[in-house]
């Protein structure tokens, strides 16, 4: 039994497919591909897959990662690639299938590109100012459904603002994840404005040392 790490992008209309739905869909593709996946034991056996970091509904991604557990160790990565490639539909482009280098739980940062359709310059400069603050206290919904104050700035590793685009690197992963939407929402709330239409692309994932997640 071994794992193979599958790299792909999620672009276009398929961004409206939730993480859960994509997960189910991947299971179907894997069945169709007939690659020798490992099936969980028990009442309702199913293949075992994990995603490096779930992607929010509506976000695109240049760098998606899914691990598949194989039953047959002699089955090569290249064979996995060739079996999956024709089945990946439009919007999900398969890049490669590799041996995992880092452990699945080691994602620590993510790059986001946030592009606004059309915004006044003052919006972008205001956003920049906000991000330049030493602290950005905001309310975040907890798992229990209550709200607590958190400092968004603690999650911001770096950022830059150009024209209509915000590039930002945020803490990501299990314990310390920040959705960039929360920054935009906070900005709008403080200024009592409506958030203009924007698109988010997650462009890269990193480990703790800001090394590309592989």
């Amino acid at each position: 039994m071994r794992s193979v790490r599958v790299f792909f992008e999620k672009k276009g209309d398929i961004k409206y497919i939730s993480h859960l739905d994509l997960n189910r869909f991947m299971l179907k593709i894997i069945r169709m591909s007939k690659i020798p996946v490992w099936y969980s034991e028990g009442f309702n056996p199913h293949p075992y897959i994990t995603f490096a970091l779930p992607l929010s509904l509506g976000f695109e991604s240049d760098y998606e990662i899914m691990d598949i557990r194989l039953d047959d160790d002699s089955f090569k990565n290249e064979e996995v690639y060739n079996s999956l490639k024709p089945l990946f539909p439009e919007g999900l482009k398969l890049f490669s299938c590799e041996d995992p280098v880092m452990k699945a739980g080691q994602v620590a940062y993510a790059d986001y590109k946030i592009e606004f359709d059309s915004v006044p310059d003052c919006y972008m400069s205001g956003l920049e100012q906000l991000l330049n603050n030493d602290a950005i206290i905001a309310k975040k919904k907890t798992k229990k459904g209550t709200y607590k104050d958190i400092d968004l700035k603690e999650f911001v590793k770096s950022f830059s603002v150009n024209d209509n685009t915000l590039l930002i690197t945020l803490s990501a992963g299990g314990s310390n994840n920040l959705n960039p939407k929360l920054i935009l929402d906070t900005f709008s709330q403080r200024n009592e404005i409506e958030t203009p239409y924007y698109k988010v692309t997650r462009t890269m994932l990193y480990n703790e040392n800001m090394e590309k997640f592989k």
């Binding site: 276009g12 209309d13 398929i14 409206y16 497919i17 939730s18 739905d21 869909f25 179907k28 593709i29 509904l57 509506g58 089945l87 539909p89 439009e90 919007g91 359709d117 239409y197």
Partner: peptide
């Protein structure tokens, strides 16, 4: 599309499914 994220299960309105 600008409003799709404000409706429930937007995947129902975009097509592009396999087959």
């Amino acid at each position: 599309e600008k409003h799709l994220l404000n409706v429930q299960k937007p995947g129902r309105y975009v097509g592009g499914e396999l087959n």
